[in-house]
């Protein structure tokens, strides 16, 4: 094979090395998390920025978010196989953002059931054409329709999944980070896998409802958990304390936008002025803050 043919083959065929694994941490008994870096999706990280992982029961394993592309999904699968010989029975997708779902393909198997919020399928189908273009242009991933794996189990309110002597409680949330967020609670270790309902260090990204997100946080704040796993950022061991920065940011965003709307100001004004006092507290503030203002403004201008 000529060199350039080899190169083009390599470029268009993602090479997955059987031995590739990713770094995971056992944060509680049989609960493993790969902690992503706080970066924008780009050509270096190929969008691999989210916290993803798995939980092992007596019978089988469930994956929680599969990664940003099939290569990362495969690496996660390889990692699971180096840790346990138990089969994978579920892949749970917490929501449709590309850093959480496009590793799904690596887990496709007759024995694996995909699980998500009842609005997840719609979100995946409507967002995928756009993500595929972006992904190719900006993150160096070649995704195709084969990477679209929809949930066969849909959660409307709550659902219990038994991994063998380990029951996970899944909750479909009202519109918050997105309009299809799903969280997973493991009573055995008192761990709540919140995924992108909680951001730490990385600026929270609003793609659902600011009012909904604040009220979900206020509701969850009443509970206590030994561990909470955010979608981006470090493990939480002091829940009531660790959720405060995100809550404070969202409350400030809402307060300042409501004030501008009352004053008859427009989205363009809000983008320039709202909640910049939070700038130094967050990573990727400049990348996502204006987007958050836009989404929140478009929601709040409909309040009576």
């Amino acid at each position: 094979m000529k060199f350039f043919q080899l190169v083009s083959l390599l470029i268009f065929t993602p090479i997955i090395f059987a031995s590739d694994t990713i770094k995971v941490k056992e944060i509680a008994a049989d609960v493993y998390v790969h902690f992503g870096k706080h970066e924008l999706p780009n050509n270096h990280n190929h969008g691999e920025i989210a916290n993803i992982g798995f939980i092992i029961g007596d019978k089988c394993v469930t994956v929680i978010d599969s990664g940003a592309n099939p290569t990362q999904g495969k690496a996660l699968k390889n990692t699971i196989q180096t840790i346990t010989s138990k089969p994978i029975c579920y892949v749970i997708n917490t929501h449709a953002h590309p850093d959480h779902i496009y590793g799904n393909r690596a887990f496709k198997d007759a024995k694996v059931k995909f699980v998500g919020h009842h609005k997840l399928s719609r979100a995946i189908l409507t967002r995928s054409p756009y993500y595929f273009t972006k992904s190719k242009e900006q993150f160096g991933n070649q995704l195709t329709s084969a990477d679209v794996v929809l949930p066969s189990i849909e959660v409307k309110n709550t659902l219990q999944l038994d991994l063998g002597n380990r029951i996970l409680e899944l909750t479909a949330h009202p519109s918050a980070h997105t309009d299809h967020d799903l969280s997973i609670y493991d009573s055995k270790t008192d761990t709540l896998w919140l995924s992108d309902l909680l951001f730490r260090e990385h600026l929270p990204v609003l793609d659902g409802s600011i009012n909904g997100w604040i009220s979900e946080l206020e509701r969850l704040e009443q509970n206590s958990y030994t561990y909470v796993i955010p979608g981006h950022g470090a493990l939480v061991t002091d829940w009531k304390h660790s959720l405060q920065p995100q809550k404070k940011y969202l409350l400030l965003l809402r307060k300042e936008i409501r004030l501008l709307i009352q004053q008859g100001k427009f989205l363009e004004d809000a983008i320039k002025t709202v909640a910049y006092s939070e700038q130094k507290r967050w990573k990727l503030f400049n990348e996502f803050h204006k987007k958050n203002i836009s989404t929140a403004f478009a929601e709040l201008e409909w309040e009576e």
Binding site: K134, K291, E299
Partner: peptide
Amino acid sequence: ASGGCSAPIGADLDT
């Protein structure tokens, strides 16, 4: 158009 996680759709279709 930036390459973040948002898509050109609308955040909350049902609302």
